[in-house]
């Protein structure tokens, strides 16, 4: 019953409003853009006043951050950031190539899950940063080190989320397939993979966040690339440029995440938000 099921409270994404009499629109002070302008504006003003009070060695003013952004364009800091992300993507791609098939196997076959599941889960919840000093011994401090760290940070998300996806496929659908005589290959193509796709993309998204974290940790550890730049800016207390450079990392990360979200909406329009379904596993 479509009409009767309209909920009273607005669901996120779709704003449902009940119109009573002529009062069709929210009053100004209840509208999101107005509240945001007001509060965010106030935050910016408070930031500026605070920074002017404590001085540039403690907190940068907004113009200083903007100047830092221009400076970062000029002195190649942003190119360094892009280069860091390129290397990160190598490790991330490796993690995807290894992790996703492994996750699909784990979800599909109870046996595989039983054998390697406990090890995967153990690495998933534990603190991988502790491994860094050992990874350096294995791989040195160069390209391989950074790729290895990013790989380790991301790969477990890329195993566990697709595995949860395969398990979430409705038994009824699988049985329907069986009763129509669908073979294992066809089942993989027509049922398992499409059913898992939203989870795979969600796993990529969660793994990407970890990969960026791994990238930053690795580069800070061996003082190279973006990490080196951030450290030297921090030591020199050039906080304006520091925040401008850090913002670039956040923004590029957000851009990549947005790309994946866009892909998720385009490729799997039938699926809702599956992030909840895997949150219990984290």
């Amino acid at each position: 019953m479509s009409l009767d099921a309209v909920p009273a409270t607005a669901t996120p994404g779709v704003s449902v409003q009940y119109v009573r009499g002529r009062q069709a629109r929210l009053p100004l002070r209840h509208r999101a853009w107005f509240q945001r302008t007001l509060v965010w504006g106030a935050i910016l003003v408070a930031w500026q006043l605070f920074a002017m009070n404590v001085g540039p060695f403690f907190f940068p003013t907004i113009p200083e951050v903007l100047a830092g952004a221009i400076e970062s364009f000029a002195d190649g800091t942003y190119l360094t950031v892009l280069a860091s992300f390129q290397q990160m993507l190598v490790g991330f791609a490796l993690a995807a190539v290894v992790g996703i098939p492994l996750g699909l196997l784990m979800g599909q076959f109870k046996f595989v899950d039983f054998v390697i599941g406990p090890f995967v889960n153990a690495f998933f919840v534990t603190s991988l940063a502790a491994l860094l000093p050992f990874i350096i011994l294995l791989f040195g401090t160069g390209f391989e080190f950074r790729v290895a760290v990013v790989f380790l940070f991301a790969v477990f998300y890329l195993i566990i989320t697709p595995a949860a996806g395969v398990r979430s496929i409705d038994r009824g659908v699988t049985e329907m397939g069986t009763s129509f005589g669908v073979g294992p290959v066809r089942r993989l193509w027509s049922i398992t993979l499409p059913g898992t796709l939203p989870f795979v993309i969600t796993g990529l998204r969660l793994g990407l966040g970890q990969a960026v974290q791994g990238m930053v940790v690795a580069e800070l550890w061996v003082s190279i690339g973006t990490g080196r730049k951030l450290l030297s800016l921090g030591y020199a207390r050039e906080l304006g440029q520091f925040f401008a450079a850090a913002a670039a990392v956040v923004l590029i990360g957000a851009f990549l995440t947005a790309l994946l979200l866009y892909g998720q909406r385009k490729l799997t329009p039938w699926a809702g938000d599956v992030e909840q379904a895997v949150s219990g596993a984290r």
């Binding site: 209840h30 999101a32 509240q35 990238m215 800070l220 520091f242 850090a246 990360g253």
Partner: peptide
């Protein structure tokens, strides 16, 4: 509704930010 409008985008932005970025300046 107010807190959602104003703070939720900020929380999601912060959630997506790698905390390790602040290691060089947190000591300050």
């Amino acid at each position: 509704r107010f807190a959602r409008n104003v703070f939720e985008p900020l929380v999601h932005a912060a959630y997506a930010t790698p905390v390790s970025l602040f290691i060089p300046v947190i000591g300050i």
